[in-house]
Design a protein around this nucleic acid. Structure first.
Lengths: 345, 345
DNA sequence: AACGTTAACGAAAACGTTTTCGTGTTAATA
DNA sequence: TATTAACACGAAAACGTTTTCGTTAACGTT
């Protein structure tokens, strides 16, 4: 490993002091033009670059942003990372990505490791396990240390920090409302056994939409499942034993699976049954027929989290004041729904 | 921002020297049991953690791995990152992710920024622009500095470093061979205008498979496209003007698009036409019918790159000796092909 | 009494910066 | 000529560690 050029070496070579070199490189007028030129030329020649670590130590900041997410293979999270990276990069920050893999322990370990100087602040979405446990001591700790924290998507209400979320209930409401507008009356919802808000909120939006349209809630059309197989099974039952003319699924995958089951039973989509998903991903775009979905705008969420964090880091926002930004969802109308001239949201 | 506990503070509080504290915390027997206990208790009470940055500076290593990839929203890359993260984490390394967004400039900038102490080594896949330019000075630079570099997928042959790739030609050969085995004789290939090896190699494998099966190459069945629309157009022409009983696409998306076009023209899949894609992603699994694909095993590729890098970093591999690992691909047989009892590869 | 040994600790250097506060030299001013 | 101001630079501290090399005191050995 070749030694890297340092101020000290330059100083020695040019027979000046380290301070002089440092100042000369910053074009400080405390140093004569002559010396400045000499130093700069030498530095350029040997391709001198200041050592990030030394600067971090000196300034007590790393210019790194720690991102802790449950998992990276989901489209939504990659979009968020993309957005974060975009803003971070533009502001001279690097992004350190850690995966909790939905594990509480790894989430804690990762946070603790990064919190000791590696990172100036955190952006995170909670692991499922963490949500179930409801143990947020690690979050409290970093917040108490004065490290800015921005949570998104899966957030902990009881932690005081900046947050970026979508209005799940409203988004679900809009989606279901759209289905109603296109003539659906027997709309089923396929949701998850969420220990968390997300599933509940989306179900709530579903119910409100029905209520506001004067449609009575049929409990048989409200199903909660975990896993692909369970979803397929539930869809089969739904289609076999119930009268259904619309299915609203709380994620993309469940919607696709429901569509597949509908196909198998020879339902026509969207003529016989409309299907709407949540979280716009690549599946929705290329499924057959393409799926109408609620778009969460992960990229914008990522950008927003990064903006909020950097604002805190650079002192543009007061430390002790926390905001919760709600990012608007939209509906991407595709061919799995009958899209009359109803206003798109 | 509350000050973090440091050795110096502990020393002051307990009225001993910094060195004593440092040694006591490491349970050095140079220090009396008494003092050790006292120091450790105090440190625990105040939740002392050593500052990563200071340690990095001292040890001249960051325990960070820099990963530079063109883009993160593709399933393949997220799988690779997952694999990297998995191994890195297990070995006490963090992963810094930077996106080049296929831009040469950002790739260079990111590398240069990370190379100054932030990172002990790099794992990367080249941006398209970089490949077109063929300008690899930034890679040379980090290699010359003695920083380990591992390239994967889109690699630069002329750079001496560790590499992890798949055998594109062989994989394509196997895929096409599989189609031939199931009775296809008029097999088309939809490839990209790659300035790079990948497209060429896969086409080569396609040709070899035909040759070895004694099937004459029909140039009309070899199409190169860029972009989704172009692909759809090409598929339409293929299906309209040529006799085709199999389509091999060099990526997942093109395969799906080809299937859609085939559906529109009322071809039955796989009865009339077999379709095979490359790069197993979520689309393949949930398309209708599910798509037979060549699986690249991104997770394993990621794990391998991380292993190789860490081996170098920890001195388990000689600095000046470079390996190229070829990760085996497999074929995931699904319902877009007629899967006779031919050996799966 | 002189010497060596050991235990327990501290001082200081080092990692590579930045920044404050001198200090010596020269030139301008009173 | 004496004073001041400007200029050009260096020394040293600081960021938080780790590690080497003392140093001191107590004790045991001849």
């Amino acid at each position: 490993m070749k030694r890297k050029m340092t101020l000290k070496q330059i100083a020695k070579e040019l027979d000046v002091s380290v301070s002089t070199v440092s100042k000369a490189l910053k074009d400080s007028k405390e140093i004569s033009q002559d010396t400045r030129d000499k130093v700069q030329a030498f530095a350029k020649l040997y391709n001198y670059r200041p050592n990030n670590i030394a600067i971090s130590l000196k300034n007590r900041q790393s210019r790194n942003i720690g991102v802790i997410i449950p998992d990276i293979v989901h489209h939504f999270f990659t979009q968020v990372i993309s957005g974060i990276e975009n803003i971070a990069n533009a502001n001279g920050y690097n992004v350190i990505v850690c995966l909790s893999n939905e594990s509480f322990e790894r989430e804690v370990l990762n946070m603790e490791a990064l919190a000791q100087g590696s990172t100036d602040g955190f952006i995170m979405s909670l692991a499922k396990e963490t949500q179930e446990k409801g143990d947020y001591h690690h979050l409290r700790e970093v917040v108490n240390m004065g490290m800015p924290l921005v949570m998104f998507d899966r957030v902990a209400d009881e932690i005081y920090c900046d947050k970026v979320v979508i209005d799940d209930a409203q988004a679900a409401y809009n989606a279901v409302n759209q289905m109603i507008g296109s003539g659906c009356r027997k709309i089923a919802i396929i949701s998850t056994h969420d220990h968390v808000s997300v599933g509940k909120l989306r179900t709530l939006g579903y119910m409100n939409a029905l209520r506001d349209a004067g449609i009575e809630l049929n409990e048989n059309l409200v199903v909660k499942v975990d896993g692909e197989e369970a979803c397929a099974e539930a869809a089969r039952k739904l289609l076999k034993y119930q009268v259904v003319d619309g299915i609203f699924a709380v994620n993309e995958l469940y919607a696709i699976i429901a569509m597949q089951e509908a196909h198998k039973r020879e339902f026509r989509i969207p003529e016989d049954i409309s299907v709407v998903g949540f979280t716009d991903g690549i599946l929705s775009k290329y499924s057959n027929p393409p799926l109408t979905t609620v778009v969460q705008h992960g990229f914008e969420i990522g950008e927003m989290t990064a903006k909020m964090l950097i604002d805190k880091l650079e002192g543009r926002e007061p430390e002790d004041h926390y905001r919760t930004e709600v990012i608007k969802t939209t509906i991407e109308l595709r061919e799995s729904t009958r899209n009359e001239a109803t206003t798109t949201l």
